[in-house]
């Protein structure tokens, strides 16, 4: 059984890596700083390590999907990230893709025995 769990962990890790991007982009219609995003996502059931999220935010910014601004008015300076116009566009397209992946996979999972039955 522990063997199965090990395999599960590995596959889940890969699966999460891709979905985190969508999760992060979805929350950035309003400006957020890194740690507020970590808390926000974990409240909604998506657990992200800060060590993964911070480099990811920076990469999105470099790609032009996010824009950032330092807020130095608060007690501690924070870097806020927000979706750029390109970012919004990319996110909308991603959502469409995501829905179609979910639909296809659901179809596959629910009909997993059909082919065999059909042939027999």
């Amino acid at each position: 059984m522990s063997n199965a769990n090990e395999h599960l962990d590995k596959i889940l890790l890969e699966l999460r890596r891709g979905t985190i991007s969508i999760g992060v982009l979805s929350q950035l219609y309003e400006p957020q700083y890194g740690y507020s995003l970590v808390t926000m996502l974990s409240e909604k059931g998506i657990h992200v390590e800060p060590g993964t999220l911070y480099p990811l935010l920076r990469r999105f910014e470099k790609q032009g999907l996010l824009v950032s601004k330092w807020d130095t008015n608060e007690a501690r300076p924070r870097k806020y990230y927000l979706l750029s116009e390109t970012g919004k566009e990319v996110f909308d397209l991603l959502v469409v893709e995501w829905r179609s992946i979910v639909a296809s996979l659901n179809h596959l999972i629910e009909n997993k025995g059909d082919d065999v039955d059909g042939d027999g």
């Binding site: 501690r76 300076p77 870097k79």
Partner: peptide, 20 residues
């Protein structure tokens, strides 16, 4: 070129994590 910005951001993050 990225050092200062990342250092500032990490400082903020670690302080936030400690505070929580």
């Amino acid at each position: 070129t990225q050092r200062k910005d990342i250092a500032n951001e990490l400082h903020g993050l670690i302080e936030d994590m400690l505070e929580e």
